[in-house]
Amino acid sequence: MGTDDKMSHKVEELGGKAKEVFGAATGDERLEAEGKAQQASANAKQAGEHVKDAAKDAFGK
């Protein structure tokens, strides 16, 4: 996984966490849910990149 991808996905995850916390603090359920969804998306992307890395390591490419 490239460093740019790692940072991009981490920034997306942290942005989602910020939305979730802000939404919870202000009582904005929509924003809170949007933050949770953004975090889930970022985590899925990170998992996909980890699978790619593991495949490259396993097959020596």
Rank of each mutant, 00 (worst) to 15 (best):
M1E: 03
M1I: 04
G2N: 12
G2C: 07
T3P: 06
T3R: 11
D5A: 05
D5H: 03
D5E: 06
K6N: 14
M7T: 05
S8M: 14
S8I: 02
V11I: 12
V11R: 14
V11G: 10
V11Q: 13
E13P: 04
L14D: 09
G15A: 15
G15M: 15
G15L: 15
G16L: 03
K17L: 15
K17Y: 13
K17H: 13
A18S: 09
A18L: 12
A18F: 08
A18Q: 06
K19G: 02
K19D: 13
A24P: 10
A24W: 02
A24C: 07
A24K: 14
A25T: 08
A25M: 11
A25G: 09
T26V: 05
T26A: 08
T26F: 05
G27D: 05
G27T: 06
D28M: 03
D28L: 02
D28F: 02
E29P: 08
E29K: 13
E29V: 12
R30F: 06
R30S: 10
R30M: 10
E32P: 01
E32H: 04
E32W: 02
A33L: 07
A33C: 03
G35H: 00
G35C: 02
G35R: 00
G35N: 10
K36M: 10
K36Q: 15
A37Y: 04
Q38G: 08
Q39C: 10
Q39W: 05
Q39L: 08
Q39T: 12
A42G: 00
N43G: 05
A44P: 00
A44K: 00
A44S: 11
K45S: 09
Q46P: 02
Q46Y: 01
G48K: 04
G48C: 04
G48H: 06
E49F: 10
E49N: 13
E49H: 12
H50C: 04
V51L: 09
V51M: 05
V51Y: 07
K52L: 03
D53Q: 13
D53T: 13
A54T: 11
A55P: 03
A55C: 08
A55G: 06
K56S: 05
K56P: 00
D57H: 11
D57Q: 14
D57P: 01
D57K: 15
A58T: 08
F59I: 09
F59T: 12
G60I: 06
G60V: 08
K61G: 14
K61L: 14
K61C: 11
